[in-house]
Simulated assay, not measured.
Amino acid sequence: MTTAVLIALVALIASLLGACGSDDSDSGSGASFTMENAFGTTNVPVSPKRILAVSEADLNAAQVLGVTPSVVAEYKEFPFNTWTTDALKEADADPERIWTGTSYEIRTEDVVKAKPDLILAVGSWYMDDTYKQLSKIAPVVTFPKPFTSPSDVDSATFLRTVAKALGKEDEAEKVIKDTDAKAAQWREDNPSVVGKTAALAVQYIGGGISNDSVEPYVANYLKMFGLVPPPSSDPAQPSLEDLSSLDRDILILNFYADRKEITENTVFKNLAVVKDGRTVENKPLAEAAGTPTYLNMNYVLDDTGVRDALRAAAAKVKS
């Protein structure tokens, strides 16, 4: 074999090896970019292979972008909602579960066992306590500044944060645009609902009642239907002796404990909204308000049961 042939052969082998190395790099091996959040800076892998979603809202954000995380947290006391399970079936996906009890906190030992290479935690209520711990396991994507908790984060910011981490920013903008258009059409198709005042009250485990509609994320959700939420200055935890802040055109209710504590309360029964039958108990409508995501927002906008319930209550409002 001549020297010239040997040189050519060595060059060919080198070029093939170089091509293999290029493929590995393109697959995201070692490649990352930075994302700022309320607690610091995260180096996010370009092509994460094993994603953990620590809340149903984080799972929903990934799902609406066409991504199903490998591992998800599901709470035994609050199993996934219909829109989430429907999307899993549609994707023919059955991700691993990290189970928790009545608390929404994720145990770090379970996360270690899951071996994620990216943690989606924009919807986590425990970042103050767990961000540093989780960051030692894998990069954590959570809410950006100036937000201080998931309840402050608007739906668009939530989705865009997850989308940036997953390299799905164009898809996110399309979802936002299409959902805004669908909501506008809903309001056009249901003028009797638009402009009505509304409150959303929840009886959580432990008793009492919470006026969740004073929270910005719930207020924005109600506005999607053209409803007018109560002032943010209204009491978030009204006493059972004074429920006047719930007396709106429409009162949306959700119960997690013994409903009789509320429904048999004399003050509650004497509210005009209750006496006139302008209360709404619709599980999808109330559950989606808990953490509005573009997946569940589209679900309720398409749900004829939600539409009919709001129309029926609005029809009883006295002019």
Rank of each mutant, 00 (worst) to 15 (best):
residue 2 T to N: 15
residue 5 V to S: 12
residue 6 L to Y: 06
residue 6 L to Q: 13
residue 9 L to I: 14
residue 10 V to Y: 01
residue 10 V to N: 02
residue 13 I to P: 02
residue 15 S to K: 12
residue 16 L to C: 13
residue 16 L to A: 15
residue 16 L to Q: 12
residue 19 A to W: 00
residue 21 G to L: 14
residue 25 S to H: 09
residue 27 S to Q: 15
residue 28 G to W: 04
residue 29 S to H: 09
residue 32 S to P: 00
residue 33 F to K: 03
residue 36 E to G: 08
residue 38 A to D: 11
residue 40 G to T: 05
residue 40 G to W: 05
residue 42 T to V: 15
residue 44 V to E: 07
residue 45 P to E: 09
residue 45 P to T: 10
residue 46 V to C: 12
residue 47 S to K: 15
residue 48 P to I: 12
residue 50 R to W: 00
residue 50 R to Q: 11
residue 51 I to P: 01
residue 53 A to V: 08
residue 58 D to H: 03
residue 59 L to G: 00
residue 61 A to V: 02
residue 64 V to T: 13
residue 66 G to M: 11
residue 70 S to E: 15
residue 71 V to F: 01
residue 72 V to R: 05
residue 72 V to D: 06
residue 73 A to T: 06
residue 80 F to M: 00
residue 80 F to T: 00
residue 83 W to A: 01
residue 88 L to T: 06
residue 91 A to P: 01
residue 91 A to C: 05
residue 94 D to E: 15
residue 98 I to R: 01
residue 101 G to Q: 07
residue 105 E to P: 02
residue 108 T to V: 15
residue 111 V to H: 00
residue 113 K to C: 04
residue 113 K to F: 01
residue 116 P to L: 10
residue 121 A to V: 04
residue 128 D to K: 13
residue 135 S to P: 04
residue 135 S to K: 02
residue 137 I to M: 02
residue 137 I to W: 02
residue 140 V to E: 06
residue 141 V to L: 09
residue 141 V to T: 08
residue 144 P to T: 12
residue 147 F to R: 08
residue 147 F to M: 06
residue 148 T to C: 01
residue 148 T to I: 10
residue 151 S to Q: 13
residue 151 S to N: 13
residue 156 A to G: 07
residue 162 V to Q: 05
residue 169 E to D: 13
residue 169 E to V: 14
residue 170 D to C: 04
residue 172 A to C: 07
residue 172 A to D: 11
residue 174 K to F: 09
residue 175 V to H: 00
residue 179 T to E: 11
residue 181 A to L: 10
residue 181 A to C: 08
residue 184 A to K: 14
residue 185 Q to V: 06
residue 185 Q to I: 09
residue 187 R to C: 14
residue 190 N to C: 12
residue 191 P to W: 04
residue 191 P to H: 02
residue 194 V to Q: 07
residue 195 G to E: 10
residue 196 K to M: 06
residue 197 T to G: 07
residue 199 A to D: 06
residue 199 A to Q: 04
residue 199 A to M: 06
residue 202 V to E: 10
residue 206 G to C: 01
residue 208 G to E: 10
residue 211 N to D: 06
residue 211 N to W: 10
residue 211 N to V: 07
residue 211 N to L: 15
residue 212 D to G: 03
residue 215 E to T: 05
residue 217 Y to K: 05
residue 218 V to H: 03
residue 218 V to Y: 10
residue 218 V to A: 06
residue 219 A to G: 12
residue 225 F to C: 07
residue 226 G to A: 09
residue 227 L to G: 11
residue 235 P to F: 13
residue 237 Q to Y: 15
residue 237 Q to E: 11
residue 238 P to C: 11
residue 240 L to Q: 05
residue 240 L to A: 00
residue 240 L to F: 02
residue 240 L to S: 02
residue 244 S to L: 04
residue 244 S to D: 12
residue 245 S to Q: 00
residue 249 D to G: 09
residue 253 L to H: 07
residue 256 Y to K: 04
residue 264 E to M: 10
residue 264 E to H: 14
residue 267 V to A: 12
residue 267 V to F: 12
residue 268 F to T: 03
residue 270 N to P: 04
residue 274 V to N: 08
residue 275 K to I: 07
residue 277 G to S: 12
residue 279 T to D: 03
residue 280 V to K: 01
residue 280 V to I: 11
residue 283 K to N: 01
residue 286 A to I: 10
residue 287 E to P: 00
residue 287 E to C: 08
residue 296 N to K: 03
residue 298 N to F: 03
residue 301 L to D: 08
residue 304 T to Q: 14
residue 310 L to M: 12
residue 311 R to N: 15
residue 312 A to K: 13
